[in-house]
Design a protein around this nucleic acid. Structure first.
Lengths: 241, 241
DNA sequence: CGCCAGCTTGACTACATTCAATTGTAGTGG
DNA sequence: CCACTACAATTGAATGTAGTCAAGCTGGCG
């Protein structure tokens, strides 16, 4: 857990960045990573600290984009709709990632953002970030780094999650999910969500997972928790160790 | 054609941004779109104007990233390798797009960048862009806009070029390619490249294209030029007219 | 305890891949 | 100018993998 709650804050409250960012457990990897405290004070940034429950929607596609979200804990999915009606999940966000960065350049959000687990995050007004990033070289650099990260993730999804057979794709996703948690046990999305991430049907995902269980490489702990044999799985996708 | 050559410049020469950007036919959509001439003068940016031929490599993955490229004309592919050895094309760039933007945040390039056609571009030192973007709010905004565009493109590739059956995917790609050119006729990559874009085999791509030709929706003009019935094809992918 | 959504399993079908052979095309040199 | 080569594209037949449709199953929740 990496919540501001543990650092002594109550949920869904509003703060000044200067007060709260110094004690933020996500700070070293977050948007304000290396920003001087004096700068944060100067900026008078009102930050809301919020907890969303599984299934809650942060924002919707085409909705007016006014806030950027920094994710402290949990997993968020960004999804888009196809002309045919189905949904496709284009990215998953985890600790340190930003949701809704497009708020600094575009008028509307480009995805539906939905909490897949309980989620802790900070909600930051985008216009202030943009203003301040024009004055702070550090923030400016951080912001670009976050764009870069998002793009790198997208590339990985294209190369590693959208190619190869179903077993290969499911395995890669499981490895990614397990990297989230330091413990063995990790969150596993529903079969339909996995299908929308990998462009597979729920049935195919289900069968593939059943296969991995038979081989002893995957253990289901509850509806949405699992444990994997990382070494064995990495061998399947031909990745070093 | 949208070349600086037509504007009277010789190939592969070096210029100061202030001299050359004012007459650039790509300027209104390029990185320096709305930058004041006085600012450009101040920046003393040495810009190389270069022409690459089909198949030439701009840069390689992991190569030290020192330059950003603004594309004036032609098409560039960005490709990555899979652990299994195959290549995947993760993005195609066209007029106005940037190649190697990662040079401003990362140490090395993240892709192989290869010219698919004859290509006109400007090669700009990344460190100067970064410096200057910290001082110029306009450039800063432009740069973020370009990141944003790249991400949006990535999302489209994930939702529209990596899902659905082969016919659907090939059609979507053809529509995209035809949007490049105002004329009917457009550049069509080799079957293997198309396969690496869409995660299909060359054989499947070939068969799909043969099918489109039989239906009269596609006409091959030469090895790498084609013409399509846009209306008919958009109907296939269920897109408004 | 029973209901319902999400998951699993089975049988069948559709589709893309694979392997192999053939045709087509652009480039080279006699 | 044509023959020859190299490579890309096409086509066919057989195989394999994922999709589809339709039943059952399970576990969490009222």
């Amino acid at each position: 857990m990496n919540t501001l709650t543990e650092a002594g804050l109550t949920h869904d409250s509003e703060f000044r960045a200067a007060e709260v960012c110094q004690i933020c457990p996500t700070r070293e990897i977050a948007l304000f990573a290396n920003i001087k405290t004096t700068d944060l004070e100067e900026m008078h940034l009102p930050i809301q600290y919020i907890v969303y429950e599984k299934g809650d929607k942060l924002y919707e596609i085409d909705e007016k984009a006014e806030y950027i979200y920094t994710l402290h804990d949990g997993i968020i999915k960004l999804e888009q709709s196809l002309p045919t009606g189905e949904r496709r999940i284009v990215r998953l966000l985890r600790r340190g990632d930003l949701a809704g960065v497009e708020a600094v350049t575009a008028a509307g959000y480009q995805h539906n953002a939905i909490a897949m687990t309980t989620v802790n995050l900070c909600k930051i007004p985008a216009d202030l970030v943009l203003d301040f990033s024009a004055r702070s070289p550090e923030l400016h650099a951080n912001l670009m780094k976050k764009w870069q990260d998002a793009l790198t993730t997208s590339d990985i999804w294209l190369t590693k999650l959208s190619t190869g057979n179903s077993r290969y794709r499911v395995v890669r996703l499981l490895i990614w999910l397990s990297e989230n948690c330091h413990h063995e046990e990790f969150y596993m999305p529903g079969r339909e969500d996995i299908g929308n991430i990998l462009s597979l049907t729920t049935e195919t995902v289900s069968r593939t997972i059943a296969g991995l269980r038979r081989d002893g490489d995957l253990e289901l702990l509850s509806a949405d928790r699992a444990r994997i044999d990382v070494v064995a799985l990495k061998k399947i996708v031909k990745e070093s160790v």
